[in-house]
Design a protein around this nucleic acid. Structure first.
Length: 335
DNA sequence: AATCTTGCCAACCGCGTCTTA
DNA sequence: ATAAGACGCGGTTGGCAAGAT
């Protein structure tokens, strides 16, 4: 809350590193300053932030004015605590984009990047840790990996393939994503099953993704007998996670344009590639949101199709839980 | 009651990118 | 083509308030 003493004290502390020429006030904004800024922007807009303080009669730097407007004075800001739905959106998009708060905030009308960032750091982060998930990667924390590692170890003993899963769900947005991916090198696509998600790991060296086993089964998850446990990333877009602390956005940014068909691209094409990278991130986020919206619907759909996460989980846990596979853990997590 | 700790959040800082002259 | 200024972003800090000791 606003503190008069604090503002008075801070108003004495003049000067600002980015605006060393003038006497610039720092610290909390007073109601009078808010009023001045609000009135000025409502009348004149904010074409140039650097000139706003001068014309608005504020002893602040333009940067500070901009921040105050964006984070507090903007009329379209939503007040109050985050809803469960917003929280889920943040988690899902963060899983894909990482700490790109501005990008995440764009999907939450009325919320600012600062707000999202603070909410993440103060609430969501702790929640994920308490669930045994690394808040940066959304992977299981090492202390929680043993059970999952056992699962993977046993998958390797299976003949090829041990699972074929499919679903009839959420075709449209998902396909958009994969079509976009199609001109890029394949992302890392191996997976492990966790209670809440499918997490990918390792680079898929010999793609065995099939998209045409049956036209009725648009998405398949194939797990082979050892080196490749792979899944089209689009099968469960809410669960995409890449290896080595990497998310989709990192992976996409890492992709070198020269990777395209092994040839160097011309400048114009490189721009297109950059646009394509951006689109991948955007489409993936869209998919996540669509998938979240359809969660209930999808559950029902899975029941009627032959995709059954419940069955998968029970098979994995019941068959593997009795084995002592501690010696396989490191192997499993480092393959 | 006093002190310490923790959580939260507004604001700042520095750096990278974009724009403009 | 380039340099300077503006802007935007993510990380970090500082201070208040509430809870714990």
């Amino acid at each position: 809350m606003f503190s008069v003493e604090r503002v008075l004290a801070q108003s004495l502390e003049m000067g600002h590193r980015c605006c060393s020429k003038q006497k610039i006030k720092r610290g909390l904004w007073s109601p009078e300053e808010d009023e001045k800024l609000l009135r000025y922007i409502n009348t004149h807009g904010h074409k140039s932030w650097s000139s706003v303080p001068k014309y608005a009669g504020l002893q602040r730097c333009g940067k500070s004015c901009r921040l105050r407007w964006i984070n507090y004075l903007r009329p379209d800001l939503k007040r109050g605590s985050f809803t469960a739905e917003e929280e889920q959106i943040i988690i899902d998009i963060h899983r894909i984009l990482g700490n790109r708060w501005a990008q995440i905030a764009k999907h939450l009308p009325g919320r600012t990047d600062n707000e999202v960032k603070n909410f993440w750091n103060s609430c969501i982060k702790k929640k994920l840790i308490s669930q045994g998930l690394d808040p940066q990667t959304h992977n299981l924390l090492s202390s929680h990996r043993r059970s999952s590692a056992s699962t993977i170890s046993n998958m390797h003993k299976k003949s090829n393939p041990i699972f074929i899963m499919s679903s009839h769900t959420t075709n449209a947005p998902v396909e958009t994503t994969f079509q976009t991916f199609s001109s890029l090198p394949k992302p890392p696509l191996n997976i492990v099953q966790t209670p809440s998600s499918i997490i990918t790991s390792e680079y898929q060296t010999s793609p065995i993704i099939s998209n045409n086993i049956s036209s009725d089964l648009p998405y398949e998850l194939l797990i082979d007998n050892g080196s490749n446990i792979c899944s089209p990333s689009y099968m469960n877009p809410t669960a995409v996670e890449l290896s080595n602390n990497e998310n989709i956005a990192d992976w996409v940014s890492r992709v070198n344009v020269d990777d395209f068909s092994g040839q160097t691209l011309e400048e114009g094409t490189q721009v297109q590639v950059q646009q394509e990278k951006d689109k991948i991130c955007e489409d993936t986020v869209t998919d996540v949101r669509e998938a979240n919206k359809g969660n209930l619907e999808r559950s029902a759909s899975f029941e009627s199709s032959n995709f059954d996460f419940g069955l998968l989980e029970s098979v994995l846990s019941s068959e593997f839980i009795s084995h002592d596979l501690s010696c396989m853990d490191e192997l499993a997590w480092n393959f």
